[in-house]
Amino acid sequence: MITGLRYLNHSDALFTGKVPHQLGSLTNLQYLDLSWHYNRPPYRNVDNIDWLSNLSSLQYLDMSGINLTKVDIFNAITKLSSLSVLHLSNCNLKSIPVVLPYVNLTYLSTIDISENDVSSMIPNWLLGMHNLVSYNGISTDISKLIRDLSGCARYSLQRLKFHNNLLHGKLPDGLAMFSNLTELHAYNNFLSGCIPESIGSLSSSLMYLYLANNRLEDPIPEAVGELSELVVLDLSFNPLGGLISNSHFAKMTKLEAIFLSSSSVTVNMSSDWTPHFQLKNIRMGSCVLGPEFPTWLKAQRNKCLMQAFQLLYLTGFGTYLLKLST
């Protein structure tokens, strides 16, 4: 019987118009994905959300890309006591209630409310989510965002995303409070100043650091070299200068990608330094290298994607390419 259905995924399926209220009869649903990820027809909308409260077993809900301007989605989800994952990205939301009359979202661990035209304030009801693992939201005040989240998710938060938010200000030292943070996505903002030394405190957790396309300035702190779990370091398209040396990579053993394009960083590694990582992607366009082909790059055995135009003119580059091809 279809009423016993537990999993329903209509993500990017080619249906249009109103989301049918008959979905409310699927009372055993645990996973519901109705999302639309393309900025083109067919468009979907909801004019009645009362049916959602019937899905009391629902754990995963994704309505990203659906027009929700005519309904009160947040009051509807307060009745979903088993809900763990909520995606409401790009839903044309104009506001998020600061308080809700009744909240029973004990298990909520992931919330995505990005790409909506709403206030930058984190709602009070969200601050009670002590199991929050992933937050992808809207903010224009990074310091307040970090303070608010640290009050409820200091030990649980693993993924923090606030890219494309027109954020100004400096990266706060308070980021170090999230001791289990694995991903920080802060690209495409107006962040300025230096990367804080406290970033090194995330040495045992941080894997992905995306700070591209901001206004970050040099120097890059040697503390980034403490990030032993780091896989991707993206500082591209920032007005960075100064030096980076092997100290900036001292404890990195899992690094796979370095992005430093469109910066004026001088890469000055010791001639006898051999990195403990093998890269898959290197983008260092406009960085200062040479005049010899760097010894540390010779240690890279992967046929990685390399973008650093100056390398073409460095002594020894041709020999390195020949060794890779054999």
Results as ranks from 00 to 15, higher is better:
121 M>V: 15
130 H>E: 08
73 I>K: 05
297 L>Y: 08
197 E>M: 05
49 I>E: 09
115 E>Q: 10
307 Q>A: 10
254 K>N: 12
292 E>I: 04
249 F>M: 09
140 T>A: 10
215 R>F: 09
49 I>D: 10
240 L>A: 09
212 A>I: 00
160 L>G: 05
230 L>K: 04
8 L>P: 06
265 V>L: 07
94 K>G: 15
134 S>K: 07
261 S>A: 15
128 G>V: 03
258 I>G: 09
246 N>H: 15
245 S>V: 05
287 C>N: 05
31 Y>C: 01
271 S>K: 10
53 S>G: 01
276 H>N: 12
151 G>Q: 08
126 L>V: 15
167 L>R: 07
264 S>P: 00
282 I>S: 09
95 S>F: 12
299 A>S: 15
218 D>P: 06
138 I>P: 00
163 H>Q: 12
266 T>E: 12
120 S>H: 10
55 L>K: 01
186 A>W: 02
308 A>T: 05
112 D>L: 08
306 M>T: 15
275 P>N: 08
147 R>N: 12
261 S>V: 07
199 I>Q: 03
109 S>V: 03
130 H>R: 11
255 L>H: 06
72 D>A: 11
145 L>C: 08
206 L>P: 08
89 S>M: 11
304 C>D: 00
46 V>K: 06
314 L>F: 06
126 L>R: 08
245 S>P: 01
261 S>F: 02
189 N>E: 08
265 V>Q: 05
64 S>V: 07
186 A>R: 00
91 C>W: 03
68 L>S: 02
260 L>R: 03
309 F>K: 07
92 N>P: 00
234 D>R: 06
229 E>L: 09
130 H>G: 01
166 L>N: 15
185 H>T: 01
227 L>S: 05
162 F>S: 10
104 N>Y: 04
147 R>I: 12
152 C>P: 04
114 S>A: 15
79 K>H: 13
161 K>I: 12
222 E>P: 00
175 L>K: 06
30 Q>V: 12
324 L>H: 03
179 S>N: 08
120 S>E: 13
159 R>T: 09
60 Y>T: 10
58 L>A: 06
258 I>H: 07
33 D>L: 07
118 V>A: 06
62 D>S: 14
69 T>H: 14
9 N>M: 02
286 S>M: 10
198 S>D: 10
230 L>M: 10
255 L>N: 08
263 S>C: 15
150 S>T: 05
115 E>K: 12
137 G>R: 04
105 L>R: 01
18 K>I: 13
53 S>P: 02
96 I>K: 04
118 V>K: 06
317 F>N: 04
24 G>A: 07
127 L>D: 07
255 L>G: 06
